[in-house]
């Protein structure tokens, strides 16, 4: 498209702004209810902003063409992704602008079909690009959320708790992969150093499956703790997991394993030379209260 044509489209957009906006709004409504919530007022505001920036982009030089428009669409896609819009809905926002725009263009260039085709082709291309751009932004916004949540999960799901003097517990929840094992190992070893604990109970009640890889990671953690001078007990082994471990032929070596955290704690107390004793008969304390 030459510059004359561009200027003509731009001025056309300016003249027909009201008409374009109202038809666009109708078009958007015709798409039916959307999953995401957005008020009519905001939607109108967005349409108007888009139209203004689109006009600027058509008028603009080749160099900085559409920078503002892209930024605006990027922000729009990002906020819509956060509000639960599907990528299709967001892209439809741009695509639904085609119909009113083509109607206007058709009226203007109806006498010269060659120019009409050229203009519509040019406009079509840029609108398609913009629509796809919103999809891209939506996707990357979601991926960012996923990445952040993965990071959060790494940090949140590996607490090291102190049960008694010299006894640590590490309740593991979720599948153990290499990255998590690294975090778990580091936080466990660091806590062993700072608290001077000599027994660590690794509770795998929350680990859904134990395959050879998970077992290997567990053994690595146990070995590293042993090298530092702390003994490890693995507890919370469910019957199915015990079966899997044997079927897979995983060698747990001479690591102490226990079915429940309670029995592991008992052993840990033994190792520390401590014991738990009842000071009143069963039920005596609760009946007093």
């Amino acid at each position: 498209m030459n510059n004359d044509l561009k200027a003509r489209i731009a001025s056309l957009l300016e003249e027909q702004q009201e008409m374009l906006l109202s038809e666009w709004a109708q078009e958007l409504q015709a798409q039916g209810r959307q999953q995401g919530a957005i008020s009519d007022k905001d939607l109108k505001q967005q349409c108007k902003e888009f139209l203004t920036l689109f006009r600027d982009a058509v008028q603009g030089e080749e160099g900085g063409k559409g920078e503002n428009l892209r930024n605006m669409l990027g922000n729009l896609a990002r906020s819509r992704a956060e509000n639960g819009f599907t990528p299709t809905e967001t892209a439809t926002f741009v695509f639904s602008f085609k119909k009113p725009l083509y109607t206007v263009l058709h009226k203007e260039f109806s006498k010269d079909s060659n120019t009409l085709i050229e203009v519509i082709w040019g406009v079509n291309q840029s609108l398609d690009r913009l629509g796809l751009y919103t999809t891209e932004v939506t996707q990357s916004a979601r991926e960012e959320v996923i990445r952040r949540q993965q990071q959060d999960m790494l940090e949140l799901s590996t607490p090291v708790v102190s049960l008694a003097e010299g006894i640590l517990a590490l309740p593991l929840i979720g599948t153990l992969d290499s990255a998590r094992t690294q975090v778990v190992m580091e936080s466990l070893l660091q806590t062993i150093v700072t608290t001077g604990s000599t027994v660590a109970i690794i509770d795998i009640t929350g680990v859904p499956t134990v395959d050879t890889l998970v077992a290997q990671h567990l053994l690595k953690t146990v070995t590293a703790a042993r090298l530092m001078g702390a003994d490890c007990i693995i507890s919370g082994i469910r019957p199915q997991i015990a079966q899997t471990i044997v079927h897979l032929g995983v060698e747990l070596g001479n690591v102490i394993t226990k079915a429940t955290l309670a029995s592991a704690f008992k052993i840990a107390l033994d190792m520390q030379g401590m014991k738990i004793s009842r000071v009143a008969p069963v039920g005596a304390m609760t009946s007093k209260a």
Binding site: T198, L227, M228, G229
Partner: peptide, 30 residues
């Protein structure tokens, strides 16, 4: 062997050196 640093322990494990048969403790006192 006493007082192994966490980073050293992790490195040894990653190198496949689990030092079987070596006794360990947290500090000199222990």
């Amino acid at each position: 062997i006493v007082g192994m640093q966490p980073a050293v322990a992790i490195t040894l494990v990653e190198l496949g050196l689990s030092l079987p048969g070596v006794r360990t403790a947290l500090d000199v006192e222990r």
